[in-house]
């Protein structure tokens, strides 16, 4: 069995997979507490990971109806993410593996999101495209095999999930902004306001900073009362711009590469209108279940199958790496 741990942000996650990649359990312990701060507080997240990780591991083993005696590989997220948070999972995983002299597979968080696509019910065989959109990352990758991946485009500024969170804040919605904005947008007209979708940004890259500013100006120009009255239209139009920016890049990438299949990963892949829009593309589209789109350890275990595991004791000195320091995909 593969025991996988993921603590890169504010979800304390553990999962058990069979060696051939079947997910036996996928435990996600969401901390919730960050909502009151309007964002993830790194120190608070790290403290909670330490309190929750033992129980998450026990729970994952119990739900998989197995014990540590059956574990043959420990997989863990090494980065990118909040370093203090990552170090709780990494230290725990190294301790677990060392006590039993098990091999350890260090996994890149982004690799995990790509691997989650292979856990979708109707997952395509490579080659395919994968769009990863979350609060920290937005990139479009080409997957030629579990080990051969190349980045075709990435955001030049904000991540798509960050655009959701910042837009939600502008509209006075609580954190996390994505689900709140999606709910508000349901009653609104996506064509009411024309927000930029960064069509001029080159190739397959993304940009969401202009969109965020555009919403800010629109709200200011409307004035407080009118902005409140038209909040549903603002939310729907803003969401539409994000969805279009993502979907059109996917469409362009499919045309450029001639590939016929696409998977989605990252928390933004849980967005209903994005899922619907992408499913309308002329391609085989596979979107994993929501709990495999947001941060989870099952995807880390899945990605570990394409990583060369480190034998004991070579991993004992392994360090985490922060945001922006992604070691994946290998050049």
């Amino acid at each position: 069995m593969i025991l996988a741990l993921e603590t890169s942000c504010d979800d304390t996650c553990a999962a058990v997979l069979t060696p051939d990649g079947e997910v036996r359990s996928n435990v996600i312990s969401s901390q919730g507490i960050h909502d009151r701060y309007g964002g993830v507080v790194p120190e608070v997240a790290s403290r909670h990971h330490l309190e929750l990780i033992d129980a998450a591991v026990d729970d994952a083993l119990a739900r998989a109806d197995t014990t540590l005696d059956d574990v043959t590989l420990v997989a863990v997220t090494r980065g990118p993410g909040l370093v203090g948070a990552l170090l709780v999972g990494l230290s725990h995983a190294k301790g677990l593996a060392a006590a039993r002299e098990l091999p350890l597979a260090p996994v890149d968080h982004l690799h995990g999101h790509v691997a989650a696509g292979a856990l979708a019910d109707d997952a395509p065989e490579p080659p395919f495209l994968c769009l990863i959109a979350s609060g920290g990352h937005t990139l479009l990758v080409r997957v030629d095999s579990a080990r051969e991946v190349s980045v075709l485009g990435r955001t030049l500024d904000d991540a798509a999930g960050e655009a959701f969170d910042k837009g939600a804040r502008t509209l006075g919605l609580p954190y996390p902004g994505g689900p709140a904005l999606e709910r508000l947008a349901r009653e609104g007209d996506p064509g009411a306001f024309a927000f930029p979708i960064a069509e001029r940004v080159g190739a397959l890259d993304f940009s969401f900073a202009g969109l965020k500013t555009s919403l800010l100006y629109k709200v200011r120009d409307l004035g407080e009362d009118a902005a409140r009255e038209r909040a549903t239209d603002l939310a729907a139009s803003y969401q539409h711009a994000i969805v279009e920016a993502l979907a059109r890049r996917c469409e362009r990438a499919l045309a450029q590469t001639g590939l016929r299949a696409l998977t989605l990963g990252g928390g933004v892949a849980a967005n209903g209108p994005l899922r619907a829009r992408v499913e309308s593309l002329d391609a085989h589209v596979a979107i994993p279940a929501r709990e495999l789109c947001t941060d989870n350890a099952a995807m880390i275990g899945a990605a570990a199958r394409a990583v060369d595991p480190l034998a004991f004791p070579s991993y004992l000195g392994l360090d985490a790496y922060p945001s922006g320091g992604s070691h994946w995909p290998p050049a």
């Binding site: 120190e43 790290s46 403290r47 990971h49 330490l50 990780i53 033992d54 591991v57 540590l68 370093v83 203090g84 170090l87 709780v88 999972g89 230290s91 725990h92 995983a93 190294k94 301790g95 677990l96 593996a97 060392a98 006590a99 039993r100």
Partner: peptide, 21 residues
């Protein structure tokens, strides 16, 4: 140091968890 404490204690949790020590 907060991070140092957590590295040591998370490592201790992992070692104890896996060995029953």
């Amino acid at each position: 140091t907060f991070t140092g404490l957590r590295i040591a204690i998370a490592t201790g949790h992992g070692l104890a968890h896996a060995s029953g020590t």
